[in-house]
Each structure stands twice: as structure tokens, then as C-alpha cells.
């Protein structure tokens, strides 16, 4: 197991694509120390920026202790093993990750699990915008796997979601699940405006207030509860909306009845 401790508070963006268990595996500590990272426009060695320690446990685990909020692309494309970050972490955590587990005991920046293919990311804090989303110009967001966020998430989370589950225990920003075609998003608290805009499939469950309903969703039915995944279901009752009509979409929104009295007028269509 490798432990990394930042040697300073980073000012410039640090691109540390090498911090994944797959790259570290089979390397001794000297080799790891020589891995290249970018700080601003300078190329440095990992050991210039982090104190690197090794213990004897054979698990392919990387622990980062300290503030890594300027460190980007940690766990990019990782296939197995585990990364634990005790502190905040920067953008593109677990970008296009294929397997393994990432735990953040702090907050994470934007694009957590961007284009993620599988694996598990747990954030015991808040996450920025574009959680589990696509990258610009690409129409594929997260495909499989699970992301759990204990706090709030920013805007455009779960954009172009193709599968997998995103569980948000706090609030979500605007455009949650934009253009998603499959998969599940569960927000336990409130969801921002333009919820599920352009959605063509999949489901979003909102346990709190849905700030605004897109006019292009039509009410379908109401349900007492809904399944999130094999281990969890959410208690309703829920209004079930279908949409987005503008995309001829078949996406489903489950919106808590109790917390959204202003949606009562839809009941006349039931």
C-alpha cells in the first residue's frame, strides 16, 4: 500500500494521471517517485510534489492524506484496486474508470466519474458539476457502476447517463440527468430546475422538492414506492412523469408527492 502526502498547498493545476493502482502495481518506491506529473506548465516527478511512503500490506491501495483539490485526473481509467483520499480532491476523479473503488473523505471537484465505465466511487462530502457525466463533444456519460455522494452535487450531473446508479444524499443542481437514456439517479433531498431535460430513458427519483418541472413532461401515474437498485428502494408516494416529450423520450421522473404540493394540479389528468 502506498501513501502519498502533498508536500505543499498546490497553486497551479497538477495533472497526476499516474496516481492509479494499475500504474503503481509492480513498481518499487523509487520507480513510483520518478513517475511524471504536470504542475502548471512544468513536468515534475511525483516525489517533487508528494511524500511517498510504502507499507507492507499487499493490497493495491493508494491513500492520499491532505488537500489534493488542485490534483486532477486521479484514478483515470483505473481497472482495479482502491484509492482513498483523506481530504478534498480536484477535477476528473475516476475519469473513464473501469473498475475498483475510490473513496473520498472530503469534497470532490467537477467531472467525478466522467465517462465512467464501471466501478464504485464514494464521496463523503460534496461533489462539483458534471458528476458521472459525459465529456464535451461526447454523447456518452457513465455506463455502469455506482457513485454515492453524501453531500450535494453541482449542475449537469448524470448528463448523458447510459447506465449505472448515482445516489445523492443531499441536493442536486440544475439539469440533473440531462439527456440520460438509461440508469438511475436518486436524489434524497431537492433537485434543481430543468430536471431530466431531454431525457430519453432511465429514471430519476426525487425525495425532496423538485424546484421546477419541465413543461415537456406529462404525468403518467402515481406509485407508493420505487426500486433504486437491488439493495435499496425509495418510499413514496411519488408522482410519475414521462418525458421528455420534445425528444419523444420514455424517461421516468419519480417526484415525492409529500414534498411537492404545487404539483397537485397534475392529478386532474390521472
Amino acid at each position: 500500500m502506498i501513501t502519498l502526502t502533498p508536500l505543499k498547498q498546490f497553486k497551479y493545476p497538477v495533472y497526476a494521471e499516474c496516481i492509479t493502482p494499475d500504474v503503481f502495481q509492480g513498481k518499487d518506491i523509487a520507480e513510483i517517485a520518478n513517475l511524471p506529473v504536470n504542475e502548471g506548465n512544468q513536468v515534475k516527478n511525483l516525489s517533487d510534489l508528494f511524500k511517498i511512503e510504502e507499507d507492507n500490506a499487499a493490497t493495491p491501495t493508494i491513500t492520499i492524506n491532505g488537500d489534493a483539490s488542485e490534483v486532477r485526473r486521479i484514478g483515470i481509467g483505473m481497472k482495479n484496486g482502491e484509492i482513498i483520499i483523506n481530504g478534498n480532491v480536484g477535477m476528473h476523479l475516476g475519469e473513464k474508470m473501469v473498475g475498483g473503488k475510490i473513496t473520498v473523505n472530503g469534497n470532490a471537484g467537477q467531472w467525478v466519474g466522467g465517462g465512467m465505465k464501471n466501478g464504485l466511487i464514494e464521496i463523503h462530502g460534496d461533489a462539483g458539476d458534471y458528476l458521472g457525466s459525459h465529456y464535451r463533444g461526447v454523447s456518452e456519460g457513465m455506463k455502469h457502476g455506482v457513485i454515492v455522494v453524501d453531500g450535494n452535487v453541482g449542475s449537469d450531473s448524470g448528463c448523458y447517463l447510459r447506465g449505472g446508479v448515482i445516489k445523492i444524499k443531499g441536493n442536486a443542481g440544475p439539469f440533473l440527468g440531462y439527456h440520460m437514456s438509461d440508469g438511475t439517479i436518486n436524489v434524497e433531498k431537492n433537485a434543481g430546475p430543468r430536471l431530466g431535460a431531454n431525457m430519453i430513458g432511465g429514471k430519476i427519483v426525487v425525495g425532496g422538492l423538485a424546484e421546477d418541472m419541465m413543461p415537456t413532461f406529462t404525468i403518467d401515474t402515481s406509485k407508493p414506492k420505487v426500486k433504486i437498485d437491488d439493495t435499496q428502494s425509495a418510499q413514496g408516494p411519488f408522482y410519475v412523469f414521462l418525458g421528455d416529450l420534445a425528444e419523444d423520450g420514455k424517461g421516468k421522473l419519480f417526484i415525492s408527492k409529500a414534498n411537492n404540493p404545487k404539483l397537485k394540479f397534475y392529478e386532474k389528468y390521472l
Binding site: R194, D212, T218, D244, L245, A246
Partner: peptide
Amino acid sequence: DYEVLQALRALVKDKELDVDSV
């Protein structure tokens, strides 16, 4: 504006909206 544009898209595609105003 987003809601209005999206509603227009649905109307151009001859869809019915559940709401009275956008």
C-alpha cells in the same frame, strides 16, 4: 427561455402539454 424553447420543440412536434403557460 430554456423551458419556452423546449415547449416550442414539443409543440412543433404536435405534442400536447399538461401545463397552461410556460
